[in-house]
Design a protein around this nucleic acid. Structure first.
Lengths: 235, 235
DNA sequence: CGGCTCATTGATAACTCTCAACGCAGGTGG
DNA sequence: CCACCTGCGTTGAGAGTTATCAATGAGCCG
């Protein structure tokens, strides 16, 4: 029987607002679930039946148009909250980008629990406000930045978000040189940035050619010149 | 002395969660304020010192880049909540588009009040979740839609949002014909859609030429063929 | 070693932006 | 009362960026 005690995100997720008894009560209505890369937890347009906490992995929130165009509207990392509590239909699907572990609740159960635990709702509110801020900042990128600015901003954002997990600044490496593995395919990067896969690829190639990044493999990126990348990102 | 009893949004704003005594307590820490069109209530980047409810008018939330590019990241209408409770700096400015009346609170006071009134926090959470949904839907527009789809989507969104105030479907008018006044200049529309003013203007002209809308004056729009507009919007 | 998927590269087209001129409306002052 | 000025919007011509279409290349697994 799995307990929350050893949970990797026990102190960072919204659960941090709960004491021992409360966490046991919450644990009783939740269950762990593992998702393979590419597997979906929630589908766009369906009634909101599930909510969850991310324990491990990276997942995308995405909406699409009938003709197949897709936009990734959010990316969630460990300790982030997933789903739409308090009614409504989910306006975006949730799909694992990497193998992931999540802590799932039925929305009804969670709603009930949250309603009787103001501290939990408070944490959830803070997180939602934070996510709204982040989302709005991303709108500036989508609406006003050029392809090169978008790609540079994307890489910088990703390094920051991945930091808690993979402090991959090798001991002994030059300062400012960071290496990490992309949880995204080129198509998914394009869907985050509102570009095509070809444009993303060309920007990667260009940044590599200018010595700002290196690309040891499809999924790996090394940031060689972070200040240059910041300039590329347009501030 | 102004009371909340006659407030236009008493039953729609987050205040609706409060009983008579509570509303009086909240009233005691808030004050009314009128904003002229173009006047700002909150500036991008400053510490969050104010929060507010919109009583009347339309306001924009906007962020910009050093070089002057601007993106409107949200538009708020009567009964909507403004500002960033629970710390942090405001990542976007808030500016009145039309003459507006708001109910302002110091953030510190509001935070304290909210923390001791779970029902208010619950309402605020619901509203924030709703706003996040709306914002994410807008990301699909910014990232994936063409100029014509953007403008059509914008008009349809606006009609819907303006509806509570101005049910301007004239008695006796053909069904589906709606007239309303834009709370935006062409530049502001461009800033909402991530386009230039010229592109917006050309799309308006084209829609008019195709008989889908009419433009009696700069600020007035008549939707003549809503189904066509829906098709233009790309679903 | 194929056969697959995914990424890169190239050539071209399309869309939107940029720059520039003009037009319209409202307000001001002669 | 009209002329002018100013701000905003429209229109046009051309350039630039990104998308589209197509082919090639690299890695992975059977």
């Amino acid at each position: 029987m799995s307990s929350c005690d050893q949970c990797l995100v026990r102190n960072r997720a919204i659960c941090a607002s709960l004491d021992k008894d409360e966490i046991n009560a919450l644990n009783a209505i939740g269950r762990r679930r593992t998702l393979a890369a590419g597997e979906s937890l929630i589908w766009e347009g369906e009634d909101s039946v599930l909510v969850a906490n991310v324990i491990e992995g990276v997942l995308k929130l995405a909406t699409g148009m009938e003709d197949g165009r897709e936009q990734i509207v959010g990316v969630v990392y460990p300790s982030d909250f997933i789903g739409r509590p308090f009614g409504g239909t989910t306006s975006h699907g949730v799909t694992a980008l990497t193998e992931s572990r999540v802590c799932v609740f039925s929305r009804r159960d969670f709603d009930g629990f949250a309603s009787s635990h103001p501290a939990l709702e408070h944490k959830l509110l803070q997180r939602t406000l934070q996510e709204l801020d982040r989302t709005r900042r991303w709108m500036l990128l989508l609406g006003r930045k050029s392809a090169s600015e978008k790609v540079a901003s994307f890489l910088l954002d990703l390094v920051e978000r991945l930091a808690p997990a993979t402090c991959d600044t090798h001991a002994g490496a030059e300062p400012g040189v960071t290496r990490f593995t992309l949880p995204f395919s080129r198509q998914q990067i394009a869907d985050v940035l509102g570009l095509t896969i070809e444009t993303v690829s060309r920007q990667f190639t260009r940044l590599k050619g200018e010595g700002i990044i290196d690309l040891p493999s499809r999924r790996d990126v090394v940031i060689l010149d972070r200040p240059a990348l910041v300039i590329e990102s347009g501030g």
